[in-house]
């Protein structure tokens, strides 16, 4: 296990150490880069930490997101239609870190890029890792790269100094868990249902049991996601896990604030942030 005093800790490791010191669980928020467009998406990204996001997952849009439900699929298509590319996702992270004169940069909030392998493979793995590090990315979650394909991106990413966050699922049994955890760093993302994003929710008891099972195998922080939509659900997850991940509910809030022609209504950003604040309050009262 990485020591907390290790000088080479990443933003993710430092953030989870802080949360532990505060005695509370964290809120991990997911938005798709470029949804509904590049400008609003960057505004939203910049405002997430102040609204209570402890870690930000930034979705890299892909045409064929096989593990995602309708909400995140639609977000990806909106982002692609607005002209988002992987290059521009990295630029967004750079802008978030640097600020723009009026808005200060954020050098503390961890950013995890989440998506599918093909855009990264197309970009070129080595170039992507260099550019992602330079932009201020801290970790990667790549849905379609199981441990069997670690040589593709996971091992090069770890070597480059990025965290590689793996998904563990209800189908990952005790025999398989060590293989899944072996090259995982930063935190472990427990997918609480066998299913796609934004659909069913797991029962609280199942989550608690799963967290206990994973904790027997790893000292890494555990974030739990899939199906968390409300502050109460977030609070329940925060009782057992080190963080709650919310994605589809935020994306749905964006979709609810588009007009009939798909154009953003005034107040879209504030509507999403207000949900983030609710969820953050939920997470904070989880262990109170």
């Amino acid at each position: 296990m990485a020591s907390m005093t290790d000088v080479k800790t990443t933003r993710i490791e430092r953030r989870f150490a802080d949360l532990k010191a505060q005695g509370r669980a964290g809120l991990v928020t997911f938005i798709t880069a470029g949804d509904p467009d590049g400008d609003l998406s960057l505004q939203l990204l910049r405002a997430l930490p102040a609204a209570g996001a402890d870690v930000v997952e930034l979705g890299m849009p892909f045409t064929d997101p096989m593990a995602d439900g309708p909400a995140i699929q639609a977000a990806g298509l909106r982002a692609l239609q607005s002209g988002m590319t992987l290059k521009r996702v990295l630029q967004m992270v750079r802008d978030f870190r640097q600020g723009d004169g009026k808005i200060p940069g954020d050098n503390d909030t961890p950013i995890v890029l989440m998506g599918y392998y093909n855009p990264i493979y197309s970009y070129g793995v080595a170039t992507f890792l260099t550019d992602a590090l330079a932009a201020g990315v801290d970790g990667l979650i790549v849905v379609d790269l199981p441990p069997e394909e670690d040589a593709e991106l996971c091992l090069p990413a770890l070597k480059a100094g990025l965290n590689f966050i793996r998904l563990a699922t209800p189908t990952t049994d005790d025999k398989r868990l060590p293989a899944v955890l072996k090259n995982t760093s930063g935190f472990v993302y427990y997918v609480s249902i066998a299913g796609i994003t934004g659909t069913r929710s797991a029962a609280d008891a199942d989550i608690a049991a799963a967290v206990a099972r994973l904790k027997r195998h790893t000292g890494l922080p555990l974030a739990v996601g899939f199906g968390i939509k409300t502050a109460d659900q977030a609070a329940a997850v925060a009782k057992a896990a080190d963080a709650a991940v919310v994605g589809s509910a935020l994306i749905q809030r964006i979709a609810d604030n588009l007009d009939a022609n798909g154009r953003p209504k005034a107040g879209l950003v504030e509507a999403v942030l207000s949900l983030v604040r609710d969820l953050a309050a939920g997470v904070r009262r989880g262990r109170a």
């Binding site: 394909e149 189908t171 049994d173």
Partner: peptide, 20 residues
């Protein structure tokens, strides 16, 4: 044994499906 035909093939699926 990794399901590869040279560079091609493989098992690029989500963890949920991997055990299946």
């Amino acid at each position: 044994e990794r399901g590869r035909f040279g560079l091609f093939g493989g098992r690029f699926v989500a963890e949920t499906l991997m055990p299946l």
